[in-house]
Amino acid sequence: MKALIAGAGRLGAQIAQVLAAARNDVTLVDIDDDRVAELEGRLPVRLLAGDACEPDILEHAGVLTADLVIATTGDDEDNLVISLLAKRQFEVPRVAARVNDAENTWLFDQKWGVDTAVPAATPLISLIEEATGATDTVALLRLSKAGVDVIETAITPQSRAAGRTLAEITLPAGTVIATVIRDGQPTVPAPEMRLRAGDELLVVSHAATEQEIHAVFQ
């Protein structure tokens, strides 16, 4: 799947990390040059600085061949404009948009090119599940084209993994840690990284169940 994400804030970056970890072709666009520079080398995606409300920027980002566009900026007006352009001008098959202000929810419909409107408070996995159209899971996201599951788990002070390095943790066969989200920022996991309370982990697995993953960390 080829995905284009507009908005490289915490949510956009997390979605990009998950979709890329599941071997999708991901492009992340943000109007803030500094934010794009900050993410360089930290995410396995194509990064582009520019205003996604501009058709030329969307075209440069690859919207003409995109299977999915997700508008995750912090501005509802921008998300609506991006969605409308993606659907009406570029005929993107699936468009999802974040709703920042609940009072604007009524605007986020197919008249504005939005196939899926996702409230800002929606958990990350549920948001991606809605955006990609995957509906065959509960509490985890199945990306059928990639043949993998992405499971979200959090480290608490009581977690057995708290204080341990990633190298010290034995994962089920066919399982890798895609990213560790710390202080709101996705981080490429390194073996020497020591987990601490508050960390959120996105784990990619071909075979392990949600229960097996949680048993490893909790």
Rank of each mutant, 00 (worst) to 15 (best):
M1N: 11
M1Y: 10
M1C: 05
A6L: 15
A6G: 13
G7M: 10
R10L: 11
R10Y: 03
R10A: 12
G12C: 11
G12H: 06
A16N: 13
A21V: 05
A22E: 10
T27F: 00
V29L: 14
V29N: 11
I31W: 03
D33S: 13
D34W: 06
V36C: 10
A37G: 11
G41N: 09
G41M: 07
L43P: 13
P44F: 04
V45R: 02
V45W: 04
R46V: 15
L47S: 01
L48Y: 03
A49N: 14
G50Y: 06
D51E: 12
E59K: 14
E59R: 14
A66V: 03
A66P: 02
L68A: 09
A71F: 08
T73C: 01
D75N: 14
D78K: 13
L80N: 03
V81K: 01
V81H: 00
L85A: 02
K87R: 09
F90K: 00
E91Q: 14
R94W: 00
A96F: 01
L107C: 06
L107V: 02
F108K: 06
F108A: 02
F108P: 04
D109F: 05
W112L: 12
W112Q: 05
W112V: 05
W112T: 05
T116N: 07
T116D: 07
A120V: 09
A120H: 13
T122A: 14
T122Y: 08
L124D: 02
E130S: 13
A131E: 03
T132F: 00
G133F: 00
G133T: 08
A134W: 08
T135Y: 06
A139M: 09
K145P: 08
K145D: 15
D149C: 05
A154T: 15
P157K: 10
Q158S: 12
T170Y: 08
T175Q: 09
V176A: 12
T179H: 01
G184W: 06
Q185G: 08
P189S: 04
A190S: 14
P191V: 09
R194W: 09
R194G: 03
L195N: 07
R196G: 12
A197D: 10
V203C: 08
A208M: 06
A208I: 10
Q211P: 14
E212A: 15
F217R: 10
